[in-house]
């Protein structure tokens, strides 16, 4: 008989290992993630190796924890983030993401309606990215022990034999490409917290990027570096590339794509969109000869595509910005989080 879950809120009982917990897992969570590998409900998923080895010669493996406040925001929620974040971390190696695990840490008192919406988002995001959630865990903690809901996802994917994508491979003469406007996610979450009282339309850019990565690789057989520009934004990713490859990266301020509303938020708060988080933006570094092909490939995925800079020899390890006035300045890493300025 199918188990029905009708409780309105999550209580400590749902994490205690008894019937209430079984009801939560089998009555509420499982139906969203339903797939063959998960269905036996053993303590571990048993993944056939054959289909993996057919795809490539290395396993990519990653984990990420998600603690966003608020849980829901325009353009996504913690569920979409949890799937796309791990899918994207896998994809940035060139890997084809396959299987994810999902750990839920729930603060007692969480509304079940909200949890359902988030699980629904996870289901949708997983389907879109072509991955299956094959193992999971649920914990319920006392009020104050967590902030409503934390999600951890881990994932594996398979790296095709011909992919060699690493931060240290940025080479002088390469170009820097991004697949859309920057800072939408960071600005949307900031605005969704509600304390800015700004009347603007901002949506997170949250999306899986595995399709884009495959398209990029099809257009350019030798993509040198790839990273999704999440926390710390594009500026942080580029600093990582420059340091790792001991090259300099020069951005052209005119070419940095930022939506007007996001620029407006940044102007008002004294923030810089280059440091705002994105959840559906990749930064690619690849040989200049493939620019046209890769831009077209990204367009074909429905994304924008912009060349924002180039790799130059020096100063090694630094990121520079050529300003709209033709002068240059350093784009450094942030010290901590970006804090709004007073005036």
């Amino acid at each position: 008989m199918a188990i029905r879950f009708n409780d309105p809120i999550i209580t400590l009982a749902h994490g205690a290992g008894g019937k209430a917990m079984r009801d939560l897992v089998e009555g509420l969570i499982l139906p969203y993630f339903d797939n063959e590998l998960l269905a036996p409900l053993e303590d571990q998923a048993r993944v056939p190796l054959g289909e993996l080895t057919a795809l490539g010669d290395r396993l990519a493996m990653t984990t990420d924890s998600f603690v966003v406040d608020p849980l829901e925001f325009p353009g996504g929620d913690i569920g979409t983030l949890a799937i796309n974040g791990t899918v994207n971390d896998l994809a940035m190696s060139g890997a084809i993401p396959r299987y994810l695990t999902c750990g839920l840490i729930i603060e007692e008192g969480l509304e079940v309606g909200l949890l359902k919406r988030i699980l629904g988002s996870m289901k949708q995001a997983a389907a879109k990215a072509g991955v299956a959630i094959v193992s999971g865990d649920t914990k319920v903690v006392q009020r104050g022990g967590a902030d409503k809901l934390f999600i951890n996802t881990a994932g594996i994917g398979v790296i095709p034999a011909d992919a060699d994508i690493r931060a240290s491979r940025a080479q002088v003469g390469d170009v820097v490409i991004v697949n859309g406007v920057l800072g939408d996610h960071g600005a949307a979450v900031l605005n969704a917290r509600g304390d800015l009282a700004l009347d603007v339309e901002l949506r997170s850019d949250c999306q899986p990027l595995n399709r884009q990565v495959q398209a990029l690789r099809a257009a350019c057989p030798d993509v040198h570096c790839l990273r999704d520009a999440t926390r710390g934004g594009v500026a942080t990713v580029l600093n990582e590339f420059a340091e790792s490859a001991q090259v300099a990266i020069r951005l052209n301020e005119r070419d940095i794509p930022v939506r007007d509303t996001v620029r407006g938020v940044c102007e008002i708060l004294g923030l810089d969109a280059l440091y705002l988080a994105n959840e559906g933006r990749l930064v690619a570094i690849l040989p200049a000869e493939y620019v046209q092909a890769t831009l077209s490939a990204l367009h074909a995925c429905g994304d924008e595509a912009h060349v924002i800079g180039e790799v130059i020899p020096s100063p090694a390890g630094r990121v520079l910005m050529k300003t709209v006035f033709g002068s240059e300045r350093i784009v450094d890493r942030l010290v901590g989080e970006q804090l709004p300025r007073i005036c």
Partner: peptide, 15 residues
């Protein structure tokens, strides 16, 4: 400091 910030952000000294 607001002026200082703009001067550096836009590289005005170089002009």
């Amino acid at each position: 400091g607001g002026h200082t910030h703009t001067i550096f952000k836009f590289g005005l000294e170089e002009l």
